Simulated assay, not measured.
Amino acid sequence: MMKTEREKMLNGELYSSTDSDLLRGKSRASHLGVNFHVGKNFYMNAGCVILDCARVDIGDNVMFGPNVQIYTVTHPIKSEARKKGKQMAYPIKICDNVWIGGGSIVLPGITIGKNSVVAAGAVVTKDVPENVVVGGNPANIIELIDNDQNYTSSVSF
């Protein structure tokens, strides 16, 4: 049996973004946030963008600075597929107690571990472990977080 374009999208497969069912869903989702799931005590500053073609899970006590961008969707490298409107989507998971600094970008398929911090302007291209600060483009670990001590970072955000 043929998979629908929606099934392909949710499974991370190449799908047609111009499918009529998906276009209707996109319009409806812009009002509902259908693939966007948030825990308790979530804060999102102004200008944030969440493209939730795949599921976005955000844990408890998560903060987004202004203009954070969360992208689950990506496009094929080969131009022929792009010309046909094909794209893929991969889920993003942001665990509990994460702070994402202003202007950061989180790419498709990423998990950010609990208690971690993404420095302002970082581009997260790979999974972030628990209890670290990442920064830069592409984001790399720049500091370990010791949650058992009084902690003041030497890194400014």
Rank of each mutant, 00 (worst) to 15 (best):
residue 66 P to W: 10
residue 119 A to R: 12
residue 114 K to H: 14
residue 91 P to I: 01
residue 132 V to G: 04
residue 46 A to N: 06
residue 18 T to M: 11
residue 110 I to G: 05
residue 156 S to W: 12
residue 151 Y to L: 02
residue 119 A to E: 15
residue 63 M to R: 09
residue 44 M to H: 00
residue 1 M to C: 12
residue 139 A to P: 04
residue 73 V to D: 08
residue 82 R to H: 05
residue 134 V to N: 01
residue 89 A to Q: 07
residue 60 D to F: 11
residue 131 N to I: 12
residue 81 A to W: 01
residue 112 I to M: 15
residue 32 L to E: 15
residue 109 G to I: 02
residue 7 E to P: 01
residue 115 N to Q: 04
residue 151 Y to E: 03
residue 103 G to V: 00
residue 77 I to M: 15
residue 66 P to G: 01
residue 30 S to Q: 15
residue 117 V to M: 01
residue 1 M to E: 13
residue 118 V to F: 00
residue 29 A to S: 12
residue 20 S to E: 15
residue 73 V to E: 07
residue 42 F to V: 06
residue 50 I to Y: 07
residue 9 M to G: 05
residue 134 V to W: 02
residue 43 Y to K: 03
residue 124 V to N: 04
residue 19 D to E: 08
residue 147 N to P: 06
residue 24 R to I: 10
residue 36 F to N: 09
residue 103 G to Y: 05
residue 69 Q to S: 06
residue 17 S to Q: 09
residue 87 Q to A: 09
residue 60 D to Y: 08
residue 105 I to Q: 03
residue 149 Q to S: 14
residue 53 C to D: 06
residue 35 N to M: 13
residue 34 V to F: 15
residue 3 K to W: 13
residue 94 I to R: 09
residue 144 L to E: 14
residue 11 N to F: 00
residue 78 K to I: 11
residue 108 P to H: 02
residue 35 N to V: 10
residue 27 S to W: 15
residue 28 R to A: 11
residue 70 I to F: 05
residue 100 I to D: 04
residue 142 I to R: 01
residue 137 N to D: 13
residue 26 K to L: 14
residue 91 P to R: 01
residue 43 Y to E: 02
residue 132 V to W: 09
residue 60 D to K: 04
residue 51 L to K: 05
residue 16 S to Q: 05
residue 38 V to D: 14
residue 87 Q to E: 13
